[in-house]
Amino acid sequence: MQNGSKALIEVRGLKKYFPIQEGLLRRVVGHVRAVDDVSFDIPAGKTLGLVGESGCGKTTLGRCIVRAMEPTAGEVILRVNDQEFDLTKLSAKELRAVRPHIQMVFQDPYLSLSPRKTVLNIVGEPLYINKVAEGRALEQRVRDLMDLVGLDVKYLNRYPHAFSGGQRQRIGIARAISLNPELIICDEPVSALDVSVQAQILNLLQDLQREFNLTYLFIAHDLSVVEHISDRVAVMYVGKLIEIGDTEELFQKPRHPYTEALLSAIPRPDLSRPMKEVTLEGEVPSPANPPSGCYFHPRCPYAKDICKHEAPPLVDMGNNHFSACHFAKELDLQGVGE
């Protein structure tokens, strides 16, 4: 689609359908299309922001990329050290060799980490499992990592419950970068944090990116955070990618009515920009039972007849900006302004 040959990671037609089972026999009566034919790439050293409302499939997409979950269909091409892998096709053994290149950071690493392990164990575990270091060398490496993410090394033998949210997030990041990954999938890494701590973590992620040429897929629902950290932004709605473009252009000149609605619904800490009187009504539809045609049509203020019947494809609007709206070319949509 874009920069095809140089991208570190290329996601092609990725799908994840969860079966809906019913009755005693657990018969499959339908599917939740949590991720439905999603494609994008991220060049090395860049950040792609991924936004969308709760349940639209962001986490599922992230988990399918790292194959913490088996995708239903599609390809995930990773290019490292002049080699190319399709992660979806690798055997368990091959996957183990490639895994160190991709890591995940979660909303609250505390929930995903054992409370019975010390910081040394948590951060050192990937190094140990992958036989990168042990004993003294491992401890030294963990100390270096703690230093890098701004954790006091005197906490080396502390347990995670004794840390604040921001400190726990630093532990999660230290663990994620321990194996020198190329790609980090950050799933809502700052959503649980206070604004001042959020700023510390965002700064840390940017510093690490610069230092190690890291590539981020940054999942969040906070659009101001995403605007701040991303080079490009992808917007999901009910399992589908509905818009993707360079950050500034997407925020200033969105090409999809849903993106416009999302942008206008953000309460802004700016008295000269009060919230709009009308925004969207209605709910995000269920991916188990999506509407016909364009999934957004029941809530879309610009919907016409065709929107009810035909699903719009993602089309190039120029400048590497894609939108899945029948009227993307005609509509003059509002961005966030200067």
Partner: peptide, 11 residues
């Protein structure tokens, strides 16, 4: 506090 929030639309 005011300065630690990313402002939308700020280049």
């Amino acid at each position: 506090l005011m300065q630690s929030i990313p402002k939308l639309g700020s280049k």
